[in-house]
Measured scan of single mutants.
Amino acid sequence: KLATQLLVDLAEGCHTHHFNSLLDIIEKVMARSLSPPPELEERDVAAYSASLEDVKTAVLGLLVILQTKLYTLPASHATRVYEMLVSHIQLHYKHSYTLPIASSIRLQAFDFLLLLRADSLHRLGLPNKDGVVRFSPYCVCDYMEPERGSEKKTSGPLSPPTGPPGPAPAGPAVRLGSVPYSLLFRVLLQCLKQESDWKVLKLVLGRLPESLRYKVLIFTSPCSVDQLCSALCSMLSGPKTLERLRGAPEGFSRTDLHLAVVPVLTALISYHNYLDKTKQREMVYCLEQGLIHRCASQCVVALSICSVEMPDIIIKALPVLVVKLTHISATASMAVPLLEFLSTLARLPHLYRNFAAEQYASVFAISLPYTNPSKFNQYIVCLAHHVIAMWFIRCRLPFRKDFVPFITKGLRSNVLLSFDDTPEKDSFRARSTSLNERPKSLRIARPPKQGLNNSPPVKEFKESSAAEAFRCRSISVSEHVVRSRIQTSLTSASLGSADENSVAQADDSLKN
């Protein structure tokens, strides 16, 4: 292990032709098999893994070397290190390495390699500790012929580059190093199909959405987006994914797998022009299946994007999809995704031109529960009313008269009656009930004795009459309010007539 670390330190600071010789020695160290011998017992696995620490030291050392060589000349050094790393990870899946030390190597290698970024000039870069990406002036992410390196360097940008540029090249004859992302992409596909350690798979799935944002990485080298989509959909639809995973937390289920895969599918929607129609349908189907899991909100957001990006695919699945959405409970976490999906859909009339009455009724059935102001915040309630109004205007004229009683009944049950079921009123009724029952229970537990009763009969009569009056008032709060309003209006009217009579009498006395 110490000798391997010494080789790594020497290679990191070497800029001459001896660098390749040092890498040859490190490569021989990495070539050791990580498969346990067949006769190895389970209690000896930890000791055997400790004997392979030099392999881990070599791989982690290459990660440090690549981070240094990416910004220094010659660029061919970075290319050689990158290829060695990718080849080593491929061996893991070729020979099915399952030892804990092998999983640790893959975890740290993917953690580093999935941080690679590219700008519009195809320059590769890595983020620093502050998250700012520094791009290399010597390494690009696409394949290029050595003699055409300078031509590639002087080509115009596709868009303004992001991030601070690296140091300027030493001279005009500098050759750019090619670090094609397709090599890593193929290893990522192998990981999605064969990885057995949940920690490694979770890391890859968590980092892929951010990497897919940099389309330069994908399009400048032959990366098959179709295969990526197929691998992701197979993970969700195939039963073998959960069987092969180990190291998963207790209670791990298909729902947890959906939570990890759906963000990658959402990021892949922007590549729909490069996906086969069959793959697009598979993607939409997987998102529909996710509606029954805890990732339902993410799936609804993804389907909203699909309705804009892939209208030809979503239009066929939309009638059944809208009916499925009615089975989702009206909760605060689902309110905004569902209502925004319906609001977006209302502005795309070509998608729902074939809707029948059942689909329009489903839209109103989804939106009406969110009009309850005692359960949802003001934004959700306003958005629900907006969706109902928009869809009522957009639905066909023959359907409107049939939906009017349905909508008014839903609004009455969710908006008007919600004020009668407020917690304050319920607590008031509970308190009044307890007050009504309390005197009775006290009389049963403690019967009054005439000799020891010091309270006069008049006081008892007053208290009983007050309790009886309170019971009468607490029967119905709404009736009490109505009666008080009527009494107030009658009182004001009587006072007004009394004032008029007094004024008339005063005038008569003055005349006399």
Rank of each mutant, 00 (worst) to 15 (best):
H95I: 04
S76A: 10
P160D: 13
A75H: 07
K202Y: 03
T57R: 05
Y138W: 13
C141Y: 02
R123E: 02
L116C: 03
L183M: 13
K202H: 07
H92R: 00
S230L: 05
L201M: 06
P209T: 13
P164R: 12
L245A: 02
F135Y: 11
E147W: 09
P157F: 10
G156D: 09
S120Q: 08
I101T: 04
A78T: 05
R123G: 02
G61V: 00
S230H: 12
A118L: 02
S51Y: 06
S49H: 07
E83H: 13
S120M: 10
L242F: 11
S103Q: 06
R244Q: 06
D226M: 03
G61W: 00
Q194M: 13
P160F: 08
S211W: 04
P160H: 13
K56D: 02
F185T: 03
K153W: 10
L188F: 04
E83K: 12
S104A: 12
A102E: 00
V64A: 15
A58G: 06
P180I: 01
L73I: 11
F185I: 03
L212G: 01
P157W: 12
Y143L: 10
P180E: 04
Q194P: 00
R134S: 07
G163F: 08
I101E: 02
I105E: 00
Q227K: 10
V216K: 08
S51A: 10
L70G: 02
Q227G: 07
K215T: 04
G206A: 11
G156L: 14
G131W: 03
Y71F: 08
W198Q: 02
P180H: 04
G251Q: 07
S221A: 03
Y181Q: 02
L62I: 04
I89W: 00
R207G: 04
G156W: 11
K240V: 12
T98Q: 09
L99Q: 04
A102Y: 03
M84Y: 01
P157A: 12
L158P: 10
I65W: 01
V179N: 02
L245P: 02
V86Y: 02
F219W: 04
P160I: 12
D54F: 03
G156R: 09
H77V: 01
V86R: 01
D54W: 01
Y71R: 03
R207V: 04
Y214P: 02
H122E: 02
G125P: 01
K152I: 10
L52C: 14
K240R: 08
L228K: 00
R134I: 07
T68V: 12
I101R: 01
C191Y: 00
P180M: 03
V216F: 03
L66W: 04
S196I: 10
T79E: 14
S196R: 12
V204T: 02
L73T: 10
L236R: 01
P157G: 13
E151V: 08
Y97W: 06
G247H: 13
T220E: 03
S150W: 13
V55G: 01
G163V: 13
A248V: 12
A118T: 04
V179S: 03
S150G: 12
A231L: 10
S155R: 11
L73M: 10
T241S: 05
T68R: 11
I89P: 00
C233N: 03
S237D: 09
P127Q: 05
F185G: 02
E243N: 08
E250A: 10
P161L: 14
Y143D: 12
V81C: 08
S159Y: 12
M235T: 02
